[in-house]
Write a protein that binds this DNA or RNA. Sequence first.
DNA 1: ACGGATGTTCGCGC
DNA 2: CGCGCGAACATCCG
Length: 272
Amino acid sequence: MPELPEVEFAARTLRRWLEGKRIEAAEASLTRIFRGSDANAFASELPGKKLEWIERRGKYLLLAFTKNVGLLAHLGMTGKWMRIGRTDERPSHVRASLTLEKDGVVLYRDPRLFGRIAVHPADRLFELKEIRALGPDPLVDGIDEKRLHERLHRTGRAVKVAIMDQAVIAGVGNIQATDALFHARIHPARAASSLGPKEVRALAAGIRKSIDYTLGLQGEGDAIEYVEDPGAENPFVIYGRAGHTCPRCTGTLEKLDLGGRTSAFCPHCQPA
DNA sequence: ACGGATGTTCGCGC
DNA sequence: CGCGCGAACATCCG
């Protein structure tokens, strides 16, 4: 599910759900979601606590509760935080849940178990290696074109692979990268080091544009439909549209494999 | 039935 | 050390 916009949305939603509510009970199933951490700590430390703050860095969520209890959470590919009523039937693949005082249940569902939840002292969340390894966050830090140019200049990798590197820019995934390069009119396989200042500027703008666009897709409390229910229409600009007509010219979008990920591009608008 | 999917990490070889 | 590649993780969907 998640790239930066969806994770940002999850952060806002969780903030709303948890704000001011005491956690009455916490449950965790012993799955690899808690790898490198302790599922027992989740269940034993959260009851009685209240949320103090939530932050997002790249695709990571950082949650701080009272008594210095903190969570580092990542949605992986299929993770999702949901809220249900206490007596509602639980969905399948629930890996962790928080029962809120005088309220419903906030739960984490993740069929493929690619996501993560780790319990750490709240005041040390920002010092975790996962967070320290991240490059600038486009929403929190903005995209510094000079810095991005420097970073891209010293690598021979394809530009698409480079911008999906979380150490280069935090939060860009396959969808944002694909659409951002289309906006910027840059071929995904171009060597990152070959981009000129104007192209880097266009790329920075393209990343911002695709993130803002995706953030704008979420309604009042609703998540992106395409992500939510299978069968909903693909709302992205060219992601997942190989074989279709380019939204900007009369050409046909093509498919390309880079770094094990599929992307679409327009051979006319994004020449090699 | 088969292939592919919004992510990360690890091992291998060059 | 940088980089590309493939695999692994586990499930669902068309």
